[in-house]
Structures are given as C-alpha cells and as structure tokens.
Design a protein around this nucleic acid. Structure first.
Lengths: 216, 216, 216, 216
DNA sequence: CTCTAAACGAGACGGTACGTCCAGTCTTCGG
DNA sequence: CCGAAGACTGGACGTACCGTCTCGTTTAGAG
C-alpha cells in the first residue's frame, strides 16, 4: 500500500502527508496505486476520478492533467497490475501447457483484470486509438503465453510451425474470454477441457486448407 | 404549452398528450419504444432512466416499477429490437451459409445490438440470473442461425451430425463476437473469410478425438 | 446547530434526519437559516452554495431550484435577517430621532447587513431586475425609519411637509451608507453628528429653490 | 493583437516570447497591462490571478510576489487607468461646473472605474490600510474636481469660503456615487439636476449652524 | 353505477460525480 | 542565487442522474 523502496530519510513517517509535495513520477505512481486499490475494492464500474484523487491525497486536476478519462486511467493502472503477474508454466506437453495457460488466464480474469476488461470494452467505441491500446494490453495477457506454449510444441514436433502465425493460435484464448464475458467467474475446469479437447487440439492438428476450399 | 380549454373530445390522433392516461401494456410499449430511440441516439452508455421517462412522457417511478435498473430495461428493449430483424439466408452451401450468417451478425452488431451487448457485459457480474438472461438473448442472435445452417449441411452430408451439438458449432460466432468486441465496427470481410476458411471449416471436418487425447 | 424554539411536537427527534423528507416552506426556511449562519460565520465573500447545502443537510440542487445564484439566496436570507430587527425609536425631537436612526443603521451595517450589502453591490450590474430588488431591500433598512421620523417632525412643525417626498429626505442615510462603504466598521458618533448638524438639518430647513435657482 | 507571420529570428520587438526573461519594471508593467485588459473585458468580478498571469505570459507566483491579492493588483491597475483621464471643466458658473463634474464622474463610473470600485468595496473590510488606499484613490476621482469648482465659486463670491472645508463640499459626489452604486449605468441627467438643484446648491447656501443648533 | 385501490404524471428530495476553474503554495531550473 | 514558470493540494462551481418519495389525478374493477 505504501510506497516501496528506500523511503525519504528525513520524513518521519513513510506517509507523504506534509512531506515534500509530490510531483511527476512519484505522484503518478501514487495515483496509479490508488486507482488499483479502488479497482480492487469497487471495480471498474465503481471507479471514480473523485475517489481516486481523494485516496491518492491529491486533486482531480492532477488526474485530468494526465488522463482524459477514467478509461485512460484504468488502462494504465491495468498495465501496472499485469506487470505483477506470474509467468507462464511449462508442463512438457502441449495439452498441459495450454490447460495451464487457460486456467491461469481464467483465474486472472475472474479478478480485477476481467472487471477492467469488461469496463473498457464499453469505451472502446469512443476512438480507434484507445481501442488499439486496449487490444495490445489484452493480447499480452493470454496470447503471449500461448504463443510460448505453441513454440515449444512446434519444437517437439507436436504441431506444424505455420500454426503459430495462423488465426488458429489464438482460438483457445478467444473462446475462453468469450465464455468468461458471458458467464463471469472462473471458467470451470470442464469447460476448459472441452475447449482444449473438443476444439483447440483438433484444430491445431487439422490440415490447412483455406486457399483451395475443395482441395480434398 | 399545455392545451387550453376543453381539448380533444374523442382523442383524435394517436398522440397520447392529455389523452386517457396510459397504463399496463400500452405504457410499457411506449417506454420500450422510448428506450430504443434513446439507445439508437445516445447508445447504452448514454441511456438514463431520466431521459427515457421524459421521452415516454411518464415518470421515473413507472420505469422502476417494471425494471429495477437500466440494464433490465435495456435487455427488454433489446428483445424488441431483435424481433424486427430479418431471417437467416440459404445459399445451398455450408460455406456460403456461414459467411452469410457471420456477415449479417457483424452488421447487426455494428449497430445498436453491439452497443447494448457491450453495456450489458459490464453488468453481468451483478447477478447470475441476469447473466443467464443476457446469454439467452445473445445466443438467439447468431447461434440460432448457424444451427440452422449446420443442420442443412448435415442433411447434405457436408458434415457429421454430432458436430451440431458440439462446442465446435458456435466457434465461428464466438470468434466473430470476440473480434467485434475488441475492434468494433463491422468486421471486415477478409477477417470473416479467415475465420471461416482458416478455422471454422477445418474444425468442422476435423476428427472428434477428445476421449483419448493420445489416441493417435 | 439544532433548531431553536418550540420544536415540532409530533416528530420524535427534533432533528430531521431520517424524518419525513422536508419539502416546500419547511425546507426553504431550513436553507435560509443555514445561509444566515454561514453569512454570520464567514461573511458574504465566504458564502458558498456547497456549504449552505451541506449545513442545511440537503443537496445543491435544492438550492439551485430556488435561487439561481448565491446572490439571490443572500438577498432572501437578508430579508429574513431584517425581519428580526428592532423598530425605530421616538425621542420626541427631530435631531434625536435622526441621530438614533443613523446610529442604529450604522451598527446594523457594521454587522452582517453591511457585509451582505457590499457583496450584493458587486452583483448588481448583472441584471436590472436584481438591482431593483436590492434597492428595495436596502431602502427599507434606513429610509423607512427616517421617513417615520420626518413625518413626526412635520407634524410638530419642525420642517415643512414637502421635504418628506423630496430627495433631501434620504440624504442623511445616503451619506451614512457612503461613509460606511468607504470606511467600514460602525460610523463614529462624531461623524454622525457632523452629518446631522452640518448637512442634514440645515438642508431640511433650507428653502426649496430648484425651479428658480436664483429666485431669492 | 498578437504578432502574426514568420516568427522573429532575433527577438526584434518588445515581444518577450522566448526573449530574455523579463524582470522588474518591464514585467510589472506587462502584468498591469494584462490586468487592465482583463478588467476591461471581464470586469473586476471576473478578474483572476490565473488569467492575468496567463495573459501576461508569466506565472502566478510573479503576481503574488508583488501583490498579495487581486484587490491590491486591481488598485494599482486602477491607478494606471486613472492617469489616462481627462481634466476637469470650467463653465464660469458654479452650477455649470458642478453639473459638468458630476456628469463626467457619472460617465467615468459607468465604465471600468465603477466596476473596480464596486469590487474593491467588498474587500475593504480586510484591513484598514487597504481601505485607506482605496479612499485616497476614490477621492481624487470626483472630490478633487469639485474642490476646484468650489474654489472658483468662492472667488466669485457665489458661496462662502468655509464651505470648501465643510462636509457639505462632498455631498454631491457622495450622492452621485450612492446612486450609481445602487442603480448602475450612467446616472441620468435629471437625477444629476435634482441632486444639484434640490440638494447641493441649497445646501451650499444654507447657514452654518451646527455648534448651536437652536442659536438662530 | 358508485366507490376504492392501484397506477400514473410530475417533479422535489438527499446524494454523488462530473469536468473545469481558480486560490495559494512549493519545486525546479534557467539566466 | 534570485526569480520566472508552472505543477501541486484543495475546494467550489453549476449540471446531470441516481433511486426514493410525495402529491394529486385518473382509471379499473369490485360490490
């Protein structure tokens, strides 16, 4: 909650009240922390500039000077949140890796991540630039890890390497996200198993076949 | 502004001003119409009980008596919207049918439908009951049509019939929705083509293979 | 803080919290009371709609629904303040009456009255309607009492009756107000004596002489 | 207003953009000019340190270092404004002179002068020192000219010379100011005529009589 | 056909948040 | 090293809605 690292030596308490006025990066991270705490407590829907400012012990102007809306703020706080995430697994087996990634992603989404994503989806329509930002942040959340798993599988010869760059690669993650968005809460293990065994693995092994639809 | 003197004796026009006070179904549909107009004009994000009540020339209490929140109201208005939709196509060919369905769905989403869906996704977390309602409404939008197309394909022998009830059936629609949610605006034709040719059709033709993951 | 005087007998607690929501005149007088308390504590310059609303335990909207600005509110609160004022004196002698009125007026102005007047003078430019209201309220503060004194003097034969309706009648009050506005604090007795003996009484006794300036 | 076209390569004119940083008197007069422009545009009520600083292309601290409040700043700007005023008249006749002075004063007040005066009146309560300053500035505006007129009249024998130092001397100006403060806009000619013919001239000619009220 | 209970329309009420503007203070950095 | 430029904390602005409530009025439907 409080600032981490070597705190100012002269200031008695780590708290910054009446300390030298915060500016720049110091202030910015204090605000982002406040935003994350708010997101954790009341969710994106309950996030207000007013409360974030108040919690960060600053004024709304300091927020609006940096972010033009709560959506922009949430995106940046989201980034900070993700950087604290653990890294992907390695089970030695494609199916195991994929299941692990999906399970991890599912749990992640069921928390603050998913709530933020939901909120931002409604604001994506505002401008394409913002939409692009959200997409980038989103794609590093699950697709990054899955690419890693697929890479290892290709090395082991489980799948062909062209699959890595195909649209097929992200299907599992998209189905999982889709399920989460419509159902909420951690996606149950049997749904994950179904996605993997009924759809994803068969798809990864299926022949290419788009250029000549009737090639067979 | 208000009419003066002994006004219309026999309620001349369909206008309800000063006419016999509306109640029950009459009032309800007037409110839903107002809600739809608002949704079309300002979108789900801009939808407020206040404006809907005002537009429907009634009081907020009349809304809250029927719907506990704007989300509930929007869901019902959404249903009314969907009933005005055109029906699915029939091109005689599985690929053609699927592309047609996706294209239709994409256009549909790019309008008011999609905006409402986005909004409701953020409110789904509130209670599971509400989530279930949203899912039902959602699934009649695209999945219904695709089931029809798959059914025809199965009759023609293009695909095996167990696919109809498999999770594979809805993959195309889910990928499309996923793309729309993250990109907005009508999904371009080449993306639809990719989904169909790279993912969906190969998947529909791939062998079953979930019971014994290592069957090969 | 709480209301003073014989409280409502039916309401359980004198406090209105969680009592039946206040409306109309009840609420209005609560707001005016709050405004008066604020005016007494922080003065017109420190008067804010926010604090008044908060002190009256209501929302800003309830204020703006009644008064379009703090100036309008202050004018009404001012009226309530004046109604609590004592009535004019009667010393049996014109000079005594006039001095008493000026002294009373001076003390009155040195308190909240004067502060409000100062504040309103700056807002008078906004619209003529508002200016008229301020003038009316102002004129009942001193001129009213002085008219009374002049009337008695005319009955006693100390002055001629046409003076009552002449511009001369209000000169003493205007000089006093002018002095107060530029000097603040209670106008000292010797200044009042000077106004009365050097200016006002001689003026009241001076011959008419405007039609023919050189008639004498 | 600002220079247009290809920017100055070597800081040609007095324009300070990116020029050697202004200090001392240069900066001070730039600020006062900005303040005057603001006063002319938005009036004293709309005068803010922020806008003045911005218009003078400097920071607020530069203002606060010189003036402790907008009132102090306005007083100094006011002085600069007054030095641009025309001089008093001379009609050869007391009444004519007085009317001319009042008319000139009225017009003067109806502009920026009056607005500033109004504003400063509300801030006079803060400290006596400031009040004294305002009084001095105010008294040079009308009373100075009227003293001049009275002096000439005394020389011509129209009035007795003790009147010059009596409280009676300033009555006309005070009544005019009083009227302006409560009514705003240029004081109409008939009001000026009334003040002069009904009050001021009779008063100037009335016998002294304060020491022994009943002496006559 | 009357009478009563419910629903309606209108909008006030106590709140919360919006996004902007400004007051004063404090920090940084340029001359 | 002073002072110019500008970011900071804090707070009020006036508006829009929220969801509740109170008020009369209208309308069904029970007796």
């Amino acid at each position: 909650m409080g600032p981490v690292g070597p705190v100012e030596p002269v200031e008695p308490v780590g708290d910054h009240r009446r300390g030298p006025r915060r500016r720049g990066a110091t202030l910015e991270s204090a605000i982002l922390n406040a935003a994350l705490e708010e997101l954790a407590e009341v969710g994106y829907a309950g996030l207000t500039m007013e409360r974030v400012a108040s919690r960060a012990r600053t004024g709304k102007a300091a927020l609006y000077r940096r972010w033009s809306s709560r959506a922009e703020l949430a995106v940046d706080a989201w980034a900070a949140l993700r950087s604290r995430e653990a890294d992907p697994p390695d089970t030695g087996d494609l199916r195991g890796d994929v299941v692990a990634v999906l399970r991890h992603l599912s749990e992640s989404m069921a928390g603050t991540h998913g709530d933020i994503l939901r909120g931002l989806l409604t604001e994506i329509v505002r401008d394409p630039e913002f939409a692009r930002t959200v997409r980038e942040r989103t794609s590093t959340l699950g697709p990054g890890a899955i690419q890693c798993a697929l890479g290892r599988a290709a090395e082991r010869g489980e799948i062909q390497s062209w699959v890595l760059t195909s649209r097929r690669a992200t299907v599992a993650v998209e189905l999982l996200r889709s399920h989460y968005l419509l159902h909420g809460t951690p996606v149950p293990d049997d749904v994950i198993a179904e996605i993997v065994d009924e759809v994803y693995l068969p798809l990864l092994l299926a022949p290419k076949g788009n250029a000549e639809p009737k090639a067979e």
